[in-house]
């Protein structure tokens, strides 16, 4: 393992760093520009620094219903997250055995990942109007988003259960545990780290979803819709301030999940079990 790094390491390393700059550069730029002075515009130079544009966001809404849409997006993200986690576990358990129709269902799940999101948006909107129901973010929007988060969650669970060692379950069963006890005391703790990943995906994919919510959210916007609406009529750095805030919010959510994951890992290490190694 030791020894001098080959030249290719430095070339590829430089490529990697460039890629990271490409990924993060623009976001960092609007982060800086959101601190523009009150006279500043959408590009450099900075005309002083201030919190002017953030203050603007918190004042009475000249720019739309940002906080309302944030609350809706957050609630919806939570709903989608919980549903995705629970149904992915159930689906993952179901797919451990082959059952009649399992292949068809697998391909429907895959199709759900690749079907253009505008079709889901349009189709769900049409179904609701045919049934005479009003589209609403918590009903049609929720369902439309699940067609995107569920396949993700399920794919992760399929991958987890493909590498799952059933010996632990059999040992528990031999000692007289019933099916529910096997699940609650053996399976669930073993798949917990992956579930944190599923939950993170469920929340963020929902929180940032645009196309699937476009025609299914009804009269009240979710945050991404609200932000996109702003791009057409807001031409001040207040847009950047909002972008910076939601990005910071997303980053803190990710951080919370990472901390939880590390905590689970440490707890596991403390109880001295090597179960679940190689699942991360």
């Amino acid at each position: 393992m030791e020894g001098k790094r080959p030249t290719s390491f430095y070339v590829l390393g430089a490529f990697f760093v460039t890629f990271l700059i490409f990924l993060y550069g623009p976001t960092i730029t609007i982060g800086i520009l959101s601190f523009q002075g009150p006279q500043g515009g959408l590009t450099f130079p900075m005309r002083g620094t201030s919190l002017h544009w953030f203050r603007e966001l918190f004042q009475t809404q000249a720019v739309g219903d940002i906080w309302g849409s944030f609350r809706r997006s957050f609630t919806l993200g939570m709903m989608v997250m919980v549903t995705t986690v629970v149904l992915s576990i159930m689906g993952g358990m179901a797919f451990r055995r082959r059952f009649a129709g399992s292949t068809v269902l697998f391909y429907i799940i895959m199709a759900s990942l690749v079907i253009p999101s505008i079709l889901v948006s349009l189709g769900v909107g049409l179904i609701f109007s045919q049934l005479g129901w009003d589209v609403h973010w918590a009903t049609s929007g929720y369902g439309a988003q699940l067609t995107w988060t569920l396949p993700f969650g399920l794919l992760i669970m399929f991958a987890v259960f493909n590498r799952f060692n059933p010996a632990y379950e059999e040992a528990a069963r031999d000692q007289g545990a019933n099916e529910w006890q096997v699940f609650a005391h053996i399976v669930l703790p073993l798949i917990a780290p992956s579930l944190i990943g599923v939950a993170l995906f469920g929340f963020t994919l929902s929180y940032d979803e645009f196309a699937r919510t476009l025609l299914t959210s009804g009269s009240r916007n979710t945050l991404p819709l609200e932000i996109f609406g702003m791009t057409t009529n807001v031409t001040t750095p207040v847009l950047y301030a909002l972008g910076t805030l939601t990005t910071v919010f997303s980053l803190s959510i990710i951080l919370v999940f990472i901390v939880v994951a590390l905590w689970v890992q440490r707890r596991r290490a403390r109880f001295g079990s090597d179960a679940g190694k190689g699942m991360v």
């Binding site: 623009p26 976001t27 730029t29 940032d208 932000i227 791009t231």
Partner: peptide
């Protein structure tokens, strides 16, 4: 895991 819309705006 952050917003696509914001990432577009940031260009």
């Amino acid at each position: 895991l952050t917003s696509n819309i914001i990432r577009m705006i940031s260009w």
